[in-house]
Nucleic acid binder design. Sequence first.
DNA 1: CTGAAAGCGCTTACAG
DNA 2: CTGAAAGCGCTTACAG
Lengths: 349, 349
Amino acid sequence: MSISIKEIAEIVGVSRGTVDRALNNRPGISAEVKAKVLKVAKDHGYRFNRAGRMLSIRKAPPKIGIQMPSIGNDFFLDVLAGIDKAVDELADFGVTVSIKQMKGFDPAKQVSQIRQLIDEGINGLAFVPIDDPMTSKLMDELSEKGVPVIVLNSDISEGQRLCYIGTDYTLSGRTAAGFFRVLAKGRAMQTLVVTGSHLVLGHNQRTDGFVQVAQEHPEQIHILEVVENLDDEQISYDLTKEALKQFPQLNAIYLAAGGVAGTCKAVEESGRDESIEIVCNDVTPAVIDYLKSGTITATIGQQPFAQGYQAVQMLFNFLLDGNRPDDQWLTRSEIVIAENAGQADSENR
Amino acid sequence: MSISIKEIAEIVGVSRGTVDRALNNRPGISAEVKAKVLKVAKDHGYRFNRAGRMLSIRKAPPKIGIQMPSIGNDFFLDVLAGIDKAVDELADFGVTVSIKQMKGFDPAKQVSQIRQLIDEGINGLAFVPIDDPMTSKLMDELSEKGVPVIVLNSDISEGQRLCYIGTDYTLSGRTAAGFFRVLAKGRAMQTLVVTGSHLVLGHNQRTDGFVQVAQEHPEQIHILEVVENLDDEQISYDLTKEALKQFPQLNAIYLAAGGVAGTCKAVEESGRDESIEIVCNDVTPAVIDYLKSGTITATIGQQPFAQGYQAVQMLFNFLLDGNRPDDQWLTRSEIVIAENAGQADSENR
DNA sequence: CTGAAAGCGCTTACAG
DNA sequence: CTGAAAGCGCTTACAG
């Protein structure tokens, strides 16, 4: 309940329009008047009122763009659900959202979809970036135009952005290893680490986090080998099969990225699924099935719903108040087993 | 972007005040006019606009009351933090909150604190109820006055309420047992279950959930005994010590409620902490220390921050729009080990 | 450079 | 029972 623009105007003895110009750095105001207004505002602890602003922006409501490599990828279903919820909540304020989805990771396609969004006149963008110079350059271009950009689910090595919203990849790798540490009890977990690609930052961070904890607990976790499946089920199957042959002592597999079904198939076929603990990431319908059947022991969740929800809310807030959020908004790394799988992420944004 | 009151007024050919009377069931409107207005509103899919309502209620902003047995109980720190965040977000809409805290579980004290809040003129109440007829009666009284009541963290067997916000106790017990199931591998977990009190619904639900899963997996989990520590550290210590003597095969303890430090002390003194896995509930500073030291293997979290945040938000929403929420809003049962402890719950409401 | 007015969608006294 | 007006806090053309 701070002071209002109207009250400031009365105190300074100017019109509300003038106060507005001073407070929001609009042109057409003398330096002296501006200084006087700002002083009074500061002295009285002025904070703009969201309800007032929300109502008045309805005449030119913000438009938000989303771009994601989500086609054919179940992980993004919850992200989309989170986006939907935020859109629903913000509909009252006139906010609209335009979503472009693509299949796979083609930077040219990504750039062209974002250009489409720009043509639609978006005031803010959230997207799952492919770490490519083309994308980074486009981000810089948007930032210069004053369009805030949020990177979602994956961070990017270059390019101006407002915030990264997503999992703490290192922590999720550490958590997976911690789970093996707890499981070890007496024996050592002889572990195969299956990562996606050495070219993907998040995959490397997960592997690094896993390796860190393994080194802290050498009695509990021994890494046999780190292999790269390029997120491909067939490659994942082949590599796992090979490792099973090569390492008869193998009793644990950590999947840092995709290719879960391929690895599970190889393990099931080997008949060693009883003695091998598999830990992977994300709580997709397929993973839930593997948890229930016992092939996968645990998975590390990353709150996809919250990621989608927060991206939209954060863009809206920034467009409303112009305050930069923290550089990162990290979701929790949650250990999920058969018993606590299937809890609605959606309830908690 | 639905139709507005102004537009409905124009279509029907009445004033905006009349439309308001019809839409909000206010007195002083003829049945025919009301019917006409409601028909047009329905045909055009009218939904009231939050920004408009939020701005106009500033003249008589809602006041929310909170009552909790939180003094001297670290668990509630995060609940309070969640309340604070919601209050901060709603300050723009003029919402104020009055919080009464007490130590322990005295129903008379609870009732008297709630009466104080009523005297302060609250429009909604969220509290952690003691399951006592005095409390239930007061809840009914409030509901009749039109003051919505949310029960927080514990449900209550009787009494009118808008919603229960809190953990799914049964699920948290199931999750704890599921964790033991996973840990078992080859051996059986010979488990001591330490509950709080048979008089507390939530404690019973946790124990029941644990027992369910134990029965589903008799090879993995064997319950040696269920004891009751009345949330008292000394009793917890004594009972644990006794059980350790009685059951040399004991290798797992599930703590369904409080008394964690007492049990941990007994286990540490016995020198058997290496061979005994302890799982408890909640992520308090003390529990985090035990996780790091290895005495406690895992704890089941319940999103206390989200509980506090949601209670305030839900009351505000109900006061704004009058729509009853779902009967329950359940938070997630999260498995937390040393590696993923200490993640800010606060980031995710 | 500055002010006066109108408007965003809603509610609330006040007249009649 | 109904309407006209004012107001919540802000922004946006439009005059001057």
